[in-house]
Amino acid sequence: MTDSSVRSISTFDAIRFTPEIRSAYIERFEDGPDVLTLYGKALYLDRSVLESSGKTYIPMTVLATCAFILKSGPRYVEVPEPLWTRKMLHTFLLLVCAHVAGALRFRRTMTSTYCIENEDAGRIARVPEVIPRKLRVAVLRTPLCLFGLLIRRWIFGTAASRETYEAVLGPFWGYVDRRSELVWPLPSACECSKLPSKDPSRVLFLGALTTRKGIFELLAGWDELDIRGSSLNLSIMGGGDLEHLVQDWAKGKPNVKVTISPARAQIHEELRQAGVLVLLSKPERYWREQIGLPLLEGLAHGCRVVTTAQTGIASWLADNGHCVVNDAGNPAEVASALSEASEAGFWSTASLPEINGRAAAAFRMHE
């Protein structure tokens, strides 16, 4: 549902502001509470997913959102996580407006946030590493303590994220901890995963075709599989800086298919057929894989997952029949992991929750 919706947006008691909206976000929010989502920009967004959604999504700038909060006075306001450092000032403005709006109406606004940042506490501030780590952490501690006072409910998506916030807050962590809850971001099983068409020999890469998503490591691992005479097939779906390199590499390889900028229907079709999903994320400057939406989509469709320890759900994956590669830079290890995942057969979605973790977190934040 878009801004052409009949319902007036001023009637919503709960709003969420997110700097970015994606098709996968919309699908995850679908099972959640009735929240008005205001977003800054669209990334990897299939308009058909947005238009068919039962929820309301409106593009809006941060300043316009602040004005809307002051005017409408919602009871619940969800803001971006505080350690999204590039958006920290925006988040602060949203929180101040939420509390002012509540005070003007003689009531308390329930402010909340969903946190998945799992980068080392000493790197998040983007301060040169020649500066001692304690000082780099101190740069963030003061503003984060302020957010601790302004945010009344904290939901952490991974244990790794909790550890990051605890490391930054130091002695002030207890104040946030008392207001926090851990809700794993596990998906619910996708309806199309119940259709009997999976092939364990099909491997799918889904995501941005960039260095930090482990593209070079995947290609090297696949070349190793070819040397071994593997019968696996690879489908690469996505787009990005390396898409032409990937297309050139795939030429002459009958067991490799590349789809650039696929539609959501194509993605679901590939996920339904794939037996293995691979995402070999690696750190890059101040970036670390927080969760990896393709991993969640793979789980939702019953795929065996092959990934690295960078994701915040690595421990859960390792404990539940998936493969966490120790050294993605070793083609032999990547090749072996892909082969083992394929040989392990289908992964049952029976252990997944009925409501996906992001929607469950939203219920906790807006109740």
Rank of each mutant, 00 (worst) to 15 (best):
F346P: 02
N330C: 15
G292N: 09
S281N: 12
A332S: 14
L317C: 07
A335Y: 00
T308F: 10
R288H: 07
K282R: 15
E270N: 12
V276K: 05
A265N: 11
V334W: 00
V305Q: 08
A265G: 08
V278W: 10
V325Q: 07
E289H: 03
A263S: 14
G275M: 01
G321I: 12
R272T: 15
I291P: 08
P262H: 07
Y286F: 13
T349H: 00
P294N: 09
C303S: 14
Q310Y: 00
N330E: 15
F346R: 11
R264G: 00
H301Q: 08
P331Q: 10
A263Q: 14
H268V: 08
A344Q: 11
Q273M: 11
V278A: 11
T308A: 03
I313N: 04
L296T: 02
Q266F: 00
I313A: 05
D319T: 08
S261G: 04
G298T: 02
A328S: 15
P262L: 07
R288D: 02
R272N: 12
A335E: 06
W287F: 14
P331H: 09
L338Y: 03
I291Y: 12
L296A: 07
A328V: 11
V334R: 02
G302H: 06
A332Y: 06
G321N: 08
L338A: 10
G312P: 01
A300D: 01
Q310I: 03
G275K: 01
A350C: 10
L296V: 07
N326D: 15
T308V: 08
A350K: 13
L279R: 11
A350G: 06
L296I: 02
A332G: 05
H301P: 01
L295W: 00
E333H: 08
V334F: 04
R304L: 01
A309I: 06
I267Q: 06
L295K: 06
G275Y: 05
A263R: 15
L296E: 04
A344T: 10
L280S: 05
I267N: 04
V324L: 03
P294G: 06
E289Q: 01
A335W: 07
L280V: 04
W316A: 01
Q310A: 13
W347H: 13
G321Y: 10
S281T: 13
L295R: 01
L271W: 01
H301D: 10
S261Q: 09
L293M: 15
V306Q: 12
G345D: 02
A337C: 15
R285I: 13
T307R: 00
L277Q: 09
G275A: 04
S351C: 10
G345C: 02
V305E: 11
A350V: 04
L317T: 06
G312D: 05
